[in-house]
Computed example of a mutant assay.
Amino acid sequence: MSSESLIKMANQIAQFFASEPDNAQAVRSVRQHLQSFWTPAMRRELAAWQTTHPGAALHPLVQAALTEGEGQT
């Protein structure tokens, strides 16, 4: 799957959870969704993309979920 597709899907997930008033819970929800519904390869590819393009194009909730979830891909 292309990085662009993964970024788009991850950002859509984050937008869904962005309405959660508790930011920490929103980050946990994004991370849980990625863990539950994405393959390890998809998570690794997105994390690798974030490492080479820090902050670019990814919703802040996705960035936080990937950062807090390091080592769990």
Rank of each mutant, 00 (worst) to 15 (best):
A26P: 03
A64F: 06
Q12K: 14
N23M: 04
V30T: 00
Q25V: 14
N11T: 01
I13M: 05
M1R: 15
T51W: 05
P60W: 02
A24I: 07
A14Y: 15
A64R: 13
T51E: 12
E68Y: 05
V30P: 00
T51Q: 15
V27W: 05
L34M: 15
G69Q: 03
T52N: 11
W38A: 06
M42W: 11
R28I: 03
P21C: 05
E4Y: 07
H59M: 02
I7K: 12
A64Q: 15
L6M: 12
A24R: 10
Q35H: 12
Q32T: 14
A65C: 06
S29L: 10
S19N: 10
A57Y: 08
A10R: 09
Q25A: 14
E68L: 04
S36T: 00
G55K: 11
G55Q: 06
Q50H: 13
E4K: 13
S5H: 12
P40N: 04
H33D: 08
F17G: 01
T39L: 13
M1P: 15
A26I: 07
F16A: 10
P54L: 00
M42Q: 15
F37N: 10
G69F: 00
Q63K: 09
P40A: 07
T52K: 15
M1L: 13
E70W: 09
R44Y: 03
R44T: 12
W49T: 10
R31E: 05
S29D: 10
M9K: 13
V62K: 06
Q15I: 04
N11L: 09
A64Y: 06
Q15V: 02
A26N: 05
H33G: 01
R44H: 06
L66W: 15
A18E: 12
R44V: 04
L58Q: 04
P54N: 01
Q32L: 00
H33W: 07
F37R: 13
L61S: 07
A57Q: 13
L58G: 05
P40W: 10
F16Y: 14
E4Q: 13
A18F: 02
P21E: 03
R28H: 15
A41E: 10
A18V: 08
L34E: 10
T67D: 11
R43N: 00
H59I: 06
S5I: 03
L46E: 00
M42T: 12
F16W: 13
A14S: 01
N23F: 12
A57P: 00
E68R: 09
A10W: 07
A24Y: 04
W49Q: 08
M9F: 11
V30R: 01
A26T: 03
L61W: 05
S2L: 15
P60A: 01
F17Y: 15
A41Q: 11
L46N: 01
A26F: 07
S36L: 03
V27I: 09
H59S: 01
L6F: 11
G71Y: 13
P54A: 05
H53G: 00
L66R: 08
P21M: 07
I7P: 03
Q12W: 03
A56E: 11
Q72D: 08
M1C: 09
F37M: 14
W38G: 08
K8P: 07
W49N: 07
A14H: 08
P60N: 02
M9A: 15
Q50V: 05
M42C: 08
F17D: 06
L34F: 12
V30Q: 05
M9I: 02
A56P: 01
V62S: 02
I13P: 12
A14L: 11
H33C: 09
A48P: 05
V62E: 06
M1I: 02
T39G: 09
L6S: 03
